[in-house]
Write a protein that binds this DNA or RNA. Sequence first.
DNA 1: TTTATGTATTAACAAATTGTGAACTGATCC
DNA 2: GGATCAGTTCACAATTTGTTAATACATAAA
Lengths: 226, 226
Amino acid sequence: MESKGKKILIADDEPDILEIIQYNLSKEGYDVVTAKDGDEAVGKAKMARPDLIILDIMMPKKNGVEVCEILRAQPAFKETLILFLTALSDEGSHVRGLETGADDYVTKPISPKVLISRVNALFRRVNKEPEEKVLKIENLSIDPAKFEVMVDGKDVTLAKKEFELLYLLASRPGRVFLRNEILNQVWGNEVIVGDRTIDVHIRKIRQKLGLDCITTVKGVGYKFNL
Amino acid sequence: MESKGKKILIADDEPDILEIIQYNLSKEGYDVVTAKDGDEAVGKAKMARPDLIILDIMMPKKNGVEVCEILRAQPAFKETLILFLTALSDEGSHVRGLETGADDYVTKPISPKVLISRVNALFRRVNKEPEEKVLKIENLSIDPAKFEVMVDGKDVTLAKKEFELLYLLASRPGRVFLRNEILNQVWGNEVIVGDRTIDVHIRKIRQKLGLDCITTVKGVGYKFNL
DNA sequence: TTTATGTATTAACAAATTGTGAACTGATCC
DNA sequence: GGATCAGTTCACAATTTGTTAATACATAAA
């Protein structure tokens, strides 16, 4: 399935469960990050900035409730969706979990379909959008949210494909992108276009930016360099 | 407990359950309305305009899923919280319930404390909606409370959809809103309108405002810019 | 120097997207 | 009933974007 642009962090110490959930949510179109204990969960949450965090409660290092409290105490995670997925089915844990600020509390075992339904329901209600990050390299700035490219503070107007192509290259400066990779990322797997198409777009970007920021690697591809 | 100013409609055909839930939610500070079958639920929902509807699934006249579908089809109930409280614990019912547009699905028996926690959790998430504030950008001012737009201190009359569209764009100046996002935010997820509808409204806004404040980003969407 | 390979450039063409005026549908209000 | 208005759709024009093909250029190997 096509990506929904939503990132989910799953924290559980049982590799099997982790894998099952990851597989199913990925198939549903979510981007998934995993953690196998409480400390890793906190760390990865800060790194990956997920839209939803699925937490087991009984985990090594820090338990799920502690993770939830730590994150909820930070402004950055006040709005993040949190779902407890745990074997603890007693009333006390359930109430405590929700009162810690979680948005849902689900007990194991649970069928993947049901879990996906609940995850979808959470997103449906919140409709939280992923925050794409602004790339800034030297005097060049690329803002995907605004669809805006600036050189020396001056606005440059790029067409859609041009923008996507530049964003791809600039997202990993120095890395060479094969022509095939570029085609897959910007044009998509199904679309078939000729080889020269990429060149033409590259040329337009160079032209519009007025910068020598895209290097040709003959016989290989292109890379971004400033 | 003092009233929370939130109204909850509970529909269940078992008087005992109805009473227990009503008692507990009232004690928690919610205003409670009850219905004992599907038809009554629909009727009372329209009358009372509750913030949350708790639906049993197996009820006389109309079952809970039908009630949910009927209500969700109406714009007035698109945002209303709906929670299924049912004895049906099988995977199919669970998934179907959530896909009908419910926000939570809970199986009986359930302890009052847990139910209250889940209800609180639902309201906690929904109340975080950003308050609608007056937007002021340059010589343009948009007041969602008064439904009023002013340019250079002069009143401009916009229709509802026009206003909502402008408010959406202006709420995050510079950010590009995809056509899909606009449809979801202004028209709602279920409504289907033609491609040109957005354009026409955009044009009317541009026309009425007499400002060049909405930029077209071809192939992507629109953004507000002053 | 020639040849082979791969890229740059350009113009022309095809495709996609948006702008616009007119017309249609319901609601609502004299 | 008639008038008005919001909301929508449609047909078509205007515009922009994407692609190709032809040619020129650059580089390295033979």
